[in-house]
């Protein structure tokens, strides 16, 4: 058995809120508070212990942290007041930047490939385009099928003026500055990681 002793150090320094993992006392309240607890392999408590034990691949390739619905139950219940929701988000993002996250993990795919691209394309969410991109990510056939499943809802939304019939939307006025700002923020984020 070999332990990767650098992994915990990397997480403490490079993952958002990762240093808080040191404070976890392994009580498991987070595990019992998670709405999708039936669907992960490792609870937050277990993931934190795996970080300490140096299980780099098991943690970063795991689907577990992508199951977070951002309900913040774990954050308000943690007896040590660890920002667990944010630590889980930080681990997911760290897995993504390390190229370890499974590209097919459904929430990773939605969040990174669809949602972030959608909001940075114009500055605001384009709901119609977001839904279309999501539905058609596995090809035309799958997209049409998913569209048909949700047909009644979509028609209801259109009829009540809660869905734009035109999926394309304009950019915010300050879009040039907006993209430059995001590029600079991404550059600083990288520097922060390299320095750590």
């Amino acid at each position: 058995m070999t332990y990767d002793l650098t992994f915990a150090k990397d997480v403490y320094q490079k993952a958002e809120m990762g240093h808080w993992i040191k404070m976890c006392m392994q009580c498991g309240v987070c595990a019992g508070s998670c709405p999708l607890r039936a669907h992960w392999q490792h609870s937050p408590r277990q993931l934190f212990q795996m970080v300490r034990a140096g299980k780099r691949d098991e943690v970063l390739k795991s689907s577990d942290m992508w199951m977070c619905t951002s309900c913040y139950n774990c954050i308000v219940r943690c007896p040590r007041e660890l920002p667990i929701t944010h630590i889980i988000h930080g681990l997911a993002r760290y897995a993504e930047t390390q190229g370890a996250a499974d590209p097919k993990q459904p929430t990773r795919r939605f969040a990174v490939d669809v949602f972030w691209k959608n909001i940075t394309a114009t500055g605001r969410v384009g709901e119609a385009m977001l839904t279309m991109r999501l539905y058609f990510q596995d090809g035309i056939g799958a997209g049409i099928q998913r569209g048909l499943e949700m047909r009644d809802s979509a028609l209801g939304m259109l009829k009540t003026r809660r869905l734009n019939p035109i999926p394309f939307r304009g950019k915010i006025k300050g879009y040039d500055g907006f993209t430059k700002m995001l590029a600079k923020a991404a550059e600083l984020e990288q520097k922060l990681e390299n320095k750590a």
């Binding site: 958002e16 930080g90 990174v112 949602f115 691209k117 909001i119 995001l182 984020e189």
Partner: peptide
């Protein structure tokens, strides 16, 4: 950035 912006955006963006 809503609740899932963290995955594509990290903390600063």
């Amino acid at each position: 950035s809503a609740s899932i912006g963290y995955a594509g955006g990290g903390q600063l963006p």
